[in-house]
Design a protein around this nucleic acid. Sequence first.
DNA 1: TCTATATACTTACATTTTGTAAGTTGTAAA
DNA 2: TTTACAACTTACAAAATGTAAGTATATAGA
Lengths: 128, 128
Amino acid sequence: MDNDHSGMCPRFEAAFCILGKRWNGLLIQGLLSGPKRFKDISSLIPTMSDKMLSERMKDLEFSGIVTRNVYPETPVRIEYALTDKGLALQPVMEAIQTWAESWVDNLPAASYECCDESDSNVSNPVNG
Amino acid sequence: MDNDHSGMCPRFEAAFCILGKRWNGLLIQGLLSGPKRFKDISSLIPTMSDKMLSERMKDLEFSGIVTRNVYPETPVRIEYALTDKGLALQPVMEAIQTWAESWVDNLPAASYECCDESDSNVSNPVNG
DNA sequence: TCTATATACTTACATTTTGTAAGTTGTAAA
DNA sequence: TTTACAACTTACAAAATGTAAGTATATAGA
């Protein structure tokens, strides 16, 4: 039988273990514009809870994608920044942005709910 | 100025509603090499259950990324193929593959056959 | 001292999503 | 009649995520 492909590239799979988890893409995109502290990320992505933000940051730190820097000011300032590994995702994020601009509808804010499949976020190419 | 409620680009967010869901990246990547039927995808991604495969395919169809074609043979043949919208994700997948080859360790895994690299272990960045 | 504010988290508990194994539908060959 | 295949469903368990409240540390004000 012609069954050459018994699986996918493990590195690609590993990449999607990170990118395929909720919030991670938005967090990486958010940090591409520079280091940010907890509350800044929280207000950039207001639909994400503190708990999730905290967990995802630990994951991303463990994955070597972000670093956590502590500045003992008052109140303490903690900054999250992308590592080289994280910064290397910029072309990925740009490709996604380009795709999104061509193929994803710009929804009315009021009806926008992430991952709500009862409302259409689908269309043909967006031209003008 | 009034407090920040700028958030992120809604189209980018919508894109990650799709790509940020488990399995979707692997499914799209799997279909980039051509249309496939249920059982083929299932053996390409053996860790994914039939239930999830079925659900994700419905999602991706609803999102306009795949089409489902029925051939009334015996037994019935059903093929899933990428639409233009889905095919347009190829640059994204390539960017992820490139990143993964540079930055993701090749971990001990079962049999696989991917990106024609015989390099078995890239610890840390390629430059590290 | 007691109260209040600020940042960066934790915790307990509810809800949603995903995983697992078995069952269903329809056709046809043994 | 039994078996097999393909493409799903279903019931139920486990894991992930959401929500609201609480914690720790430090400072300033009444």
